[in-house]
């Protein structure tokens, strides 16, 4: 049995009086591809944001690569993590956002090389070389010198994927990476994601509304509702033979909305 690379224990998160995540437990094995599905507002994005340390937590504990994420040891006791600890832990994790969040004032190449050069002290030559490989992987070798504003949504998202990969995180988080795209641009991003899933041993957590993609991509699917895991299992179980009524209701709605499952 290998240690899980992510362990979430009794996680709670509130925004003011609104409790969004209420006693969440799950583990992710190293290299596992996990899809998070569920109705809008069920807390999927919040979980990814918490793992990326873009939020604070209201309770519970998370371990990443064997170390607590939001806690640290101090004089033998466990205390809330300081910025230095979070900074250290963030090296394990990368994220791709729904709205790309590319740096609009930097070229495609600079978007990819900025963080490796600043945070890993990589030389420009090395960073450029690696960026070139990544751009080739996402099929955008000819766009290195372009500004993000000159790209289509699908191209922007592929650059954002390359940017996150450039830091070589062990864990990658993808938050609805195709839902801000025009329908005809979804496929090109999914192709990159599928390749990534099959060719790397990176641990990946993916939030998506594309059920057939979740089914192809994931080793395991977590179905969320109201900040809790209702059902989890391999895609065949969740999509073909769901055990819980709420999962069935959700899938019926998705199918009614025109998606193949």
């Amino acid at each position: 049995m290998t240690e899980p690379i992510i362990r979430v224990q009794d996680l709670r998160k509130s925004f003011g009086t609104l409790t969004v995540i209420d006693g969440l437990n799950f583990e992710v094995k190293k290299g596992e591809k996990l899809a998070l599905i569920g109705p809008s507002g069920s807390g999927k994005t919040t979980i990814l944001r918490i793992l990326m340390t873009l939020e604070t937590i209201s309770g519970g504990r998370i371990e990443v690569a064997g170390e607590p994420l939001y806690h640290m040891q101090k004089n033998g006791a466990e205390v809330p993590a300081n910025e230095a600890h979070l900074h250290k832990m963030r090296r394990h994790i990368g994220m791709v956002f729904q709205h790309f969040n590319l740096f609009p004032h930097k070229t495609v190449l600079q978007n990819i090389t900025l963080a490796p050069m600043l945070t890993k002290g990589e030389s420009r030559a090395n960073a450029d070389k690696r960026a070139g490989e990544l751009l080739e992987m996402v099929g955008l070798s000819d766009k290195a010198g372009h500004m993000p504003s000159q790209l289509s949504g699908g191209q922007k998202q592929r650059v954002a994927i390359a940017r996150a990969l450039a830091l070589n995180p062990e864990i990658m988080l993808f938050d609805e990476v195709t839902s801000a795209l025009d329908p005809e641009l979804v496929e090109e991003v999914l192709i990159v994601m599928k390749r990534l899933a099959s060719e790397t041993d990176m641990t990946m957590l993916l939030v998506t509304h594309e059920m057939s993609f979740a089914s192809d991509f994931a080793d395991r699917v977590l179905f969320f509702d109201k900040g809790k895991i209702v059902e989890s299992g391999p895609p065949e179980q969740i999509f073909k033979n769901p055990q819980e009524e709420r999962t069935r209701t959700f899938l019926r709605k998705i199918i009614a909305a025109g998606q193949h499952v």
Partner: peptide, 27 residues
């Protein structure tokens, strides 16, 4: 400057100074 820019800088593990100098102020 959009909130997503701060978040992208953080996801890239930039420290606060780098975030200001390379991401926020130029925009």
């Amino acid at each position: 400057v959009a909130r997503g820019q701060w978040e992208a800088a953080r996801a890239g593990n930039l420290n606060p100074r780098q975030t200001w100098v390379h991401v926020i102020l130029p925009q």
